[in-house]
Design a binder for these strands. Sequence first.
RNA 1: GUAGAUAUAGCUCAGCUGGUUAGAGCGUCGGAUUGUGAUUCCGAAGGUCGUGGGUUCGAGCCCCAUUAUUUACCCCA
Length: 472
Amino acid sequence: MSIQKPSIPQGTRDFGPAVVARRNYIFGIIRRTFEKFGYAPLETPTLENLSVLTGKYGDEGDQLLFKVLNSGNFLKKQKGDKITEQVTAEDLEAGAKAVLPKIAEKGLRYDLTVPFARYVVMNRGTLTFPFKRYQIQPVWRADRPQRGRYREFYQCDADVVGTDSLLCEAEIVLMMCEVLNTLGLTDFTIKTNHRGVLRNIYQGLGSEARETDLFVAIDKLDKIGQDGVTKELLERGFSEQAAAQLFELLAVEGSFTEKLDKLRAAFGAASVPTDAADSYKGLQELGQVVDFLTAFGFEQFDHLEFDPTLARGLSYYTGCIFEIKINNVNMGSVSGGGRYDNLTGAFGLPGVSGVGFSFGVDRLYDCLDELNLFPESAATTTRCLVTNFDAETMPLLLPLLRELRAAGVPSEMYPESGKLGRQFKYADAKGIPYVLVQGPDERAAGQFKLKEMKTGEEKTLTLEQVLAALAA
RNA sequence: GUAGAUAUAGCUCAGCUGGUUAGAGCGUCGGAUUGUGAUUCCGAAGGUCGUGGGUUCGAGCCCCAUUAUUUACCCCA
């Protein structure tokens, strides 16, 4: 066999011990926050049947699905003596679209929301609604990797199904803030909008062109500017007049509620028909979310922004939508979500409303890394290295190792006796904060030498003192 | 799928107009130091210059192809 350079697939990564420790630090904060808000954990299979996945993410999404080839001889099926061709000459003639469903019936999970919807439908008889679940698992997309974009990455979802209450939306904002605050991120913006607002804007333009084309175009406003959006709208069949009208509507300024009021007036002026209860549902619901937050005692309204240009790609959102931008890092959104009135409808359970959001851990990691926000303690798990002075006395230190671990101090003994220099280097390279030494001198006195690596400070202590120092 | 950039030591990168034996920093290993890391000093190991072809007396450098990586677009966490 010839020697080959080892490699991993494009867009995937190995995570070394220090990286995993830091990722677990992020996972831990997110998990604890979700649980604090009453969400229960759920896990679903890596593989889903392709029939569950296809058609849920639009044409683009279907392209980005990783499909898994059927096992065995995927070209033929044998039942007893009877062999049937799975793929016929006509299929091959018809191209990939005809062949694919015959050779691949499973695919890798693309997000966590669709598997969740499938789970809810399959278990609707046993679930108590409203059902609140969180889910932290990797997802896969056959995308072209680039900055902040991977082919395998983790999502941390929290969703509620079975209630229309806007309390859920308000709590999403609370959870977003809690996680970001705990991680030490300070310069972030939670952008919020409502699909109803977007629909009203579309109605206000009075154009015949496609609604989704408008949403895609205005979502890019901060990226390509007013001229770029105008150009794109004209290409998609909107009139110049409609484009001008659009920017008039979007040009609302002020606080969250001031923007709501101004837009309400602008809609009225543009003769946009009101929804139920003689008001605009999107604006009204956003106002309700703010009211809930105020009643809760929420104090970070400076981080919450009503952005009428926010659209978000996934087509199933129908109500409030959210997105988090970390402002002092050049990175795509680290979190997003929203309400979808009919997600389970695709699986035969219509009329169940859900709302949820997701953190992208890999992007959060990149942000924290760039801003140097990881605490040092997140880098390593071992807290104390017990040096191995020589082969004869090493066994005498094993009870100490047991004591340390019993006291809940993550500890390890250097497995080989030999130069202390090597052992200290090991501790330094691994980022272990404390090193414990007991040589003949200390043993004679019944004591230990504890060195704090960061300061270089060394103390001679009794066992009780060592345990007290390390437990702190 | 579209467009660009890059590929030289384990890592980050130099390498002049194409000219002898391809360099540096970091890391690794050994020593100064058989009771102490990070800091200091000395030394060593480490290279199919991504791969294949071409031009040339001569290619890390120029040309073609190919593969991989990466950035941007589309879309998205």
